[in-house]
Design a protein around this nucleic acid. Structure first.
Lengths: 217, 217, 217, 217
DNA sequence: GATGAATGAGTCTTCATTCAT
DNA sequence: CATGAATGAAGACTCATTCAT
């Protein structure tokens, strides 16, 4: 079970108990087996409800899946992210490498703990333009401003080079994503030395983004 | 159809015409719909053969899928990659940024043209340890030595910092992968300025990996 | 339809109507065509239900067949046999030939009326050790004691020779079975004179088993 | 493999090697799995020939099966029986029990060694009137006269009671058949004491058929 | 004669979905 | 709200049979 415990508190007050059970079981099974690989029968069994009940609440399988995908973004991934990075972003750093290292560690940990949620999104998002837009909007509305403000503050202080903040964010994110895909999805069984890998990545990123006197190791 | 034309020449001489048709149709449909989402009926129809014939040649759906996944790595992705990067790696560069830019452009182009193949691999590889090992072996045998030799040569010339070549390769690859996932899989419909994005990425990577006098833009 | 009418009253209260319909149709079709020769589609059609319903209740075709085979022994063949031979065994006979004649007639009639059930068992029993044991147990528990007590009583009265009752039973049964196999299974279309055949058989058996003064014809 | 070795010499000169291979493989597989349970693919594989070849020689599966059933009667069961019982029937017996014991032992041994052939016949004969007639004809033509002459000879000598020989034969055969069905088909795994069982059966049969002074044990 | 690729109807089974209770 | 029996279409897979070589 890789469900983030703090995430479970973020709940859906409008749902009945059984509805929520269905939702949670579906989430887990979709994450394990993909949309087509999961069967409503299995979901119902895991949720401890009658098969028919799923269709009282969710109309059909596709809808159930999509509702989950959207809700995962809005109710889980975004809030959890905000909650977790807020404290990191509130502080001021004299050396950006310290921040980046903490950030990468935190995000990798987040990805590890929330694989179920992420797998759901990865499955769906490349086929569903609506979800793409929704995810982007949510990101731009709730995450981007926080990070942007943080970056600008440190650029003003001369800690960061005056690059386009969107570029900084994308680069940082894609480096992280690249590592995470290799680390978590493709080769989870390899012996990874996360500390060292993050260190190397951060060093190189910093060399490009940080102002002069912050030395590499 | 996003099948790389030069790739189609790499064929399977032991296959009959219909067998190859099955193989190709299956590849495309699996890439579009995933393993469970694809039906053998649809594959047969697209291939223009009787459904039963699939099972004469491939025993079952899972085997068909796996054979494709393995063959894609061995007969398509690896040879195409070798063929395409060889000319890049034969030259000597006085500024590593020139190489990295060409490399990123080439690889992104490759990823765009071979989405079908890559999607197949991505689907399967996170569940199939055998495929993971096979892919890693093939990479370490056929790609790594080429790149390694190139890097060592440029380190000796003082163009590259004397970092562990494995780290350089992983970092470069994961930056590329991260960008490609965003660019091709997750948000293919966004307006991307590839030239600019690659430029920024390369600049930052170079700042970390290149020796002193190669200036950033 | 060769289903024994009195047998139909022995039913399965836990079954729904459709479930029973499936059960009955399957019984008949398996009896006619054997396990592999029967198709679930045909069974469903005969039962007037959707084919899928069979698998809601019985998991798979083999299970359906086995459930039927076991139930036929326990719920039909054994109870019917007990019910039918009980009255024969309660009486006392001064000439064992009278009993044997009645017994053979009754059993042959029973076999004729319950061919469906018997064919099911014969198909399965030579391949299924569990069914063999179950059938033997049921016989030894519910039939053997009745007959044994009857034989002992008549041995004490000096009507029957003091042979091992197990041997008497096996001989009588196998003579009956041999005749029944020829009569009902192998050559049902021949013109049989059952009265005469039974008479001859009984005469010879009696000569071996009955005490002295009971004369042969 | 329960094929009688002496039987294999009785061959089909008009068949090619492969045809005979098909015939033999089919015989064995039909015997094991029944008509519907056997597949032509499996038969071809076991015979080491291409699937299509079966249909060059035998037109279709049903025909193959029927040809086998008829040939088994004509070329195997009858000749083997004749060959084996001839020596038994040529002698003269002063006590019919000696003959019957030898006969039962020989026949039980025969049934044990030729189960494959017998299972084929049992499957088919109850559904196929032609085979019924053919089997009866063959029996009446090739076996009955031998036995009949033997019985008449011993009746004339006062060893056997002057009963209808057809009745004697049927009774003897059905006693044997009944025992064999229990012994070989239904409960092959039970611990049988064949000697004792045959002894008891023969004793009782003799008491009915033999003339007075041949005492029971 | 012999092969084995190819067919297409058929088999068992699963599954999303509906509906009476 | 909740159940689970029932459906029917579709799924993967098998198999007897044909045919070009």
């Amino acid at each position: 079970m890789d469900i983030d415990k703090s995430g479970e508190e973020i709940n859906f007050p409008e749902m009945t108990d059984k509805q929520r059970k269905i939702y949670e079981s579906a989430l887990e099974i979709f994450a394990q087996k993909g949309f087509s690989g999961a069967s409503t029968g299995e979901i119902a069994k895991k949720a401890g409800v009658a098969e028919g009940l799923i269709f009282k609440h969710f109309k059909n399988k596709k809808t159930l899946f999509q509702k989950i995908a959207f809700a995962v973004v809005e109710k889980t991934l975004i809030p959890l992210t905000v909650q977790r990075i807020k404290s990191l972003l509130e502080k001021d750093y004299s050396d950006i490498r310290i921040f980046l290292t903490l950030f990468f560690e935190e995000r990798l940990d987040f990805i590890k703990s929330n694989q179920s949620f992420l797998r759901i999104i990865l499955q769906e998002i490349s086929f569903d333009t609506q979800l793409q837009n929704f995810a982007r909007e949510q990101f731009e509305l709730k995450i981007f401003p926080l990070v942007n403000q943080f970056l600008k503050r440190h650029q003003e202080k001369g800690i960061l080079k005056p690059l386009d903040t969107a570029v900084i964010i994308r680069l940082t994110m894609s480096s992280l994503l690249g590592y995470a895909v290799l680390r978590v999805l493709l080769f989870p069984d390899k012996n990874w030395d996360d500390k060292m890998e993050i260190q190397s990545t951060v060093d190189i990123l910093c060399a490009g983004m940080a102002m002069g006197n912050q030395q590499l190791a």
